[in-house]
Every structure is written in C-alpha cells, then in structure tokens.
Simulated assay, not measured.
Amino acid sequence: MSQYTQQPQFPQAPTPAAQARNGLGTAALILGIIGALSGLIPFFFWLAGILGVIALIMGLAGRGRAKRGGATNKGVALAGAILGLISLIMSVVGAVILFKAVDDAVKDIDKATSGSSASKEPGDGSAKGSGKDKGKNQGKGGSAGSDTSKDAETLEAGDSAVYDDKLTVTMSAPEAYTPGEYAIGHTKGNKAYKVTVVIDNAGKEKFDAALVTAEARAGKDGVKAEQIFDEEVGEVFTGTVMPGKKATAVYAFDTPADAENLVVEISPDFFHDASQWELKL
C-alpha cells in the first residue's frame, strides 16, 4: 500500500467576472445635462461652467475606463463629456451676455443722470416776460445755457430749460383761448389759456416724447388748472424725437377768472427733472 493516499480532484468553480464600474460615465451624463440646462439662463453661467468642467473630466475618465474593460457605458460617458463641453461654451456665452447687459444698464444710468438737471436759457425777447428775465440773468453774470437758476428761479414765457444732454424745452407766452362747445376740462365762468411747448433734441440720442407730461396751477393759491381737450387743443407729444429734430404740442388750461398767473410744469420723462414756467396772464 502506498505511503501517500491520492486525494480526489474536484472541479473548481469559475471566477466571477468583475462588476462593471459605470459610475463615472453616468455621473458625467447627469452633470452635463444639468450644466447645459443652466447655461440656458445667462445668470447661471458660473454654474454651467463648474458643472461643465466636472462633466467633461468625468466623461473622459469614464470613456477611458470603458476602453480598458472596466465599464460598459462608453456611449454614456462620451455623451456626458460632450454635454460638459457644451456647458462650458454656454457658460462663456452667458457670461458675455450678462456682462454686456450690465454694461448697457450702467451706460443707461449714466445717460439718465447726465440728462437729469436743467439750466435756464432766457428767451430772445419775442415772448412776454423774456426780455425782462434776460436782463435779470445777465445782471447776475449768467449766459445762455449756464446753470444760474437751476435751484431758485422759475422760468418765464419764452425761456428754455436746457438739460445736460442738450434736450431743450421752450414754452411760449400764454394766449387767451375760447374752448369749443364740446370741450373737456373747461368750467363755465373760468378763463382758458393756451401755450405752445417746443422740444428741441440737440443731443446725440433719440428722445421718447411719449413720456412727456404737463401740469398747471393758477392764481395766488396755486389751484390746479385742468387741461382742456377739444378739436383744437389737448394734443400730446408722441413718438420719438431724433437728434437734431424738434416736436411741438399745444396745451390749454382752465383757470379761475381772477387768476393773474399760470404755473406750467413740463416733465420730459423719468430721467429728466421737471421744469416750471410762471406765466403772467
């Protein structure tokens, strides 16, 4: 009998295959989708950029793992890398759009600020009160277009309010007006006066005249003077006044019979201060 007994041989179980590691590719695809969607909103350009970088790196790493046989989602990883690249591009575009919008907003604010204040330019003496005011202004050392009455004096008939952006508003002397039979805004027993307002855009930017408003007060107590509307007066400024062009509108106001003065206030828009004219009736 042999000293060593031969042991029986048993078949060995097959070695289980290594589990596929698809996490990188899947994560790259998810981050790429989120990054691309974020890139559609310019404000989130920073998020699209961060996710795009991560998705691109993970997608390329996942594709390399799939090539080595460690993953089975090569296509998913490639899609994630592509979406990551798209997210990066959209991030750059979004940043450009956002920064340009901010820059335009700053320029608009600067433009609005530069055109907000007005200086007084006396009339040429052709309108009531203009010659008197001109002499008064010259006596103070002022000149046309100077900033001599920005805070104190109210303009008179024929004077112009000249804004920093070279927008000029001029008002004529008041003229007695007889409202029509179907006029709106006129009270029986009151008097009516009309004025002509001219807007001269001597600046470099177009002016939206549709925002111009007019209000008036009459008499020593400053009673509100209603604007009169009929077939001859009551028109308003409309449209756009291009650089170098003018626009004209005629306003009529209802005043108490004993009123001796009419204060008319013209507000060009939200970016220009209102200017007032005190007119002698």
Rank of each mutant, 00 (worst) to 15 (best):
K67G: 07
T72V: 12
G64A: 15
R65V: 10
A55I: 10
G84P: 02
A118K: 03
G59N: 02
L37A: 15
A28C: 07
V53H: 01
G59E: 04
G64K: 14
S117I: 07
I34D: 05
K132F: 04
G125Q: 02
G62I: 08
V53P: 02
S126N: 06
K132G: 07
S130G: 08
G32H: 05
K134V: 02
D133T: 07
L83S: 08
L56N: 00
I97G: 00
G69I: 13
V76H: 01
G125W: 01
G69K: 11
A118W: 15
M58E: 13
V53K: 06
A118H: 08
S117V: 09
G70N: 15
A79H: 00
A101W: 04
I89Q: 01
G115P: 07
D103Q: 13
D104Q: 10
R63K: 13
G64C: 05
V106A: 13
M58H: 04
W46G: 03
G32V: 07
K120Q: 12
P122K: 00
L51T: 14
S114D: 14
K111I: 02
A27Q: 13
S119D: 15
E121C: 09
G49T: 08
A101E: 11
V102R: 12
S87C: 03
K132S: 09
V102K: 12
I54Y: 04
G52T: 08
I30F: 13
A118Q: 05
